[in-house]
Design a protein around this nucleic acid. Structure first.
Lengths: 168, 168
DNA sequence: CCTATCATGTAATCCGTTACATGATTAT
DNA sequence: ATAATCATGTAACGGATTACATGATAGG
């Protein structure tokens, strides 16, 4: 049994596995893309390597399909659930960093108008997407994703406002 | 002469070197911490390794102090300036990701109140810090950093609002 | 003088990205 | 049938983080 460090990626995989039950990496990929992936993207390769990492330390268990392609199937273990609970319980005071490439360029002297036009458009598109998701969200979606989406919307609104002002 | 890929870290180092002129890694560290570091933090080790990387590809030049500690001194080269100009010129449509640990926890079912109380406080503190910086900013600070800070303030306001509402 | 703290650097590890590759399914 | 796309995986590389370590300087 390996010792591994749990990263945000780890918790995403654990969280999705808890919600969805036994899943293949590809299923994880789909699930992430349609939910938490909106504000925290993962490379598809990570959905193959991370479950393996987690399995090596007992946070998930791995089985293979008996027939056909013998794809890998992962399930969260009690150890995994415990880690997830623990992580969920302790609040963090860590703050987001605004790691936006456009903001870096702005900081170092890029032409604000040009930059802002493109960014305003991109952020407007993203905002529209978020609002569409919110407006067609089934009633049984739990509050967590709902609230996270709300934060995304607020952020996009602020961004659109900012860049539009800069674009003049 | 190596071929290297330029990352955001690279542009931060180049950008700071352009502004500050010949600098030691430690000076870079100080400069970054007091400016762009507010929304894009770097590990101090990167301020040692990244200039070296950049030097290996001719974007900066390295000399050593003649006396005493023989510290390394880096200067941006014409090649470095060109790369920076190029990067500044092309707008990007890349969008920020809201990679906030607290938001992940919220998404996966953490207790909103507990989380929100801590986050609201942390974001309020950061907001106050930003506003203090803005209010005491010398007149000769160029528009780039000024505007980036403004975006930071907007974002923090949205965050404070969001978490305060959640905290109830 | 002694001890914190500031300053300076290196090495190892590891996660995340990128690139490569091939098997299955669907559409034309 | 064939091309295109979806699905599934592996390997290599490299940048970022972490840990380690030592030299200078200032404060007590």
């Amino acid at each position: 049994m390996q010792e591994i460090r749990l990263t945000p990626t780890s918790y995403i995989v654990l969280g999705v596995l808890e919600l969805a039950g036994e899943s293949t990496p590809y299923a994880l990929k789909q699930l992430v893309a349609g939910s938490v992936g909106y504000f925290w993207t993962l490379q598809h390769a990570q959905l193959y390597t991370e479950p393996e990492r987690l399995a090596s330390a007992g946070y998930v268990s791995e089985t293979r399909e008996e027939t056909g392609r013998r794809r890998r199937l992962y399930t969260i273990t009690e150890r995994g659930r415990a880690a997830l609970r623990q992580w969920r319980t302790e609040p963090t005071s860590e703050l987001a960093e605004l790691r936006e490439p456009a903001l870096l360029k702005l900081f170092f002297g890029a032409d604000p108008k040009r930059l802002a036009t493109v960014q305003a458009a991109a952020n407007r598109a993203r905002l529209a997407e978020y609002e569409a998701i919110r407006d067609s969200m089934p009633d049984d979606v739990p509050p967590g994703p709902r609230q996270a989406l709300e934060m995304g919307i607020r952020f996009e609104r602020a961004a659109v406002e900012f860049w539009e002002e800069l674009a003049g």
